[in-house]
């Protein structure tokens, strides 16, 4: 065989791809970020947030400051302080709430373990990106106020998962119905 035939064959492949890209749109796989954006899949995750019911990010917070997530978080980036008093949770039962709930998202590795271990469906994964900041420390330390997001927001980013969670919570609430002060499971 002629020397260089193999190279020419390779060139032909490159040429076909190059010319083909003008005619077949599915050959163009690049997304022109930031002008165009891919739609993130439902399961996509990056940093955790705290879910609250109703419209009140203070009173509706599902977290009861049990500190399980703080203990299980592998890089130890969650810091929680338990409140001194109690407030009623979504079932009307008095519960503690986190007086402080910080997540250092410069340390968080988006592993989702906090979500898995939380027994109260209180912490979920967010999908926000473009979080770069000029400062290294405080701007990346998310306080309770930054972390609290409504259940309807949760529904908007993980619709299927949020449905399931609501169903589980409603079932749990129905079981406890005979309790003296039943409050409706509110989804804001």
């Amino acid at each position: 065989m002629m020397i260089g035939a193999g190279i020419l064959k390779g060139m032909a492949v490159t040429g076909r791809n190059f010319i083909g890209s003008y005619f077949e749109k599915d050959r163009l796989t690049t997304v022109q970020y930031p002008e165009e954006r891919d739609v993130l899949p439902e399961n996509s995750r990056n940093f955790p947030f705290l879910v609250y019911d109703t419209n009140d990010p203070e009173a509706g917070l599902r977290c009861v400051a049990c500190k399980i997530c703080e203990k299980e978080c592998p890089p130890q980036c969650i810091y929680i302080e338990k409140s001194a008093d109690k407030k009623p949770d979504y079932m009307g039962k008095p519960q503690f709430y986190p007086a402080t709930f910080d997540i250092d998202i410069s340390v968080c590795m988006s592993c989702q373990i906090c979500v898995e271990v939380c027994p109260f469906e209180a912490i979920k994964m967010d999908k926000v990106y473009e979080l770069s900041r000029r400062e290294r420390f405080d701007a990346l330390l998310m306080r309770r106020t930054d972390l609290a997001k409504s259940n309807s927001y949760y529904h908007s980013i993980h619709p299927l998962e949020a449905e399931q969670v609501d169903a589980t919570l409603a079932a749990a609430a129905a079981k406890k119905k005979p309790a003296p002060t039943p409050a409706p499971p509110a989804s804001g």
């Binding site: 065989m1 064959k9 390779g10 492949v13 791809n17």
Partner: peptide
Amino acid sequence: EFEQLITGNEI
């Protein structure tokens, strides 16, 4: 396609 690109390539 990849094999065409590489197999027989003298380099």
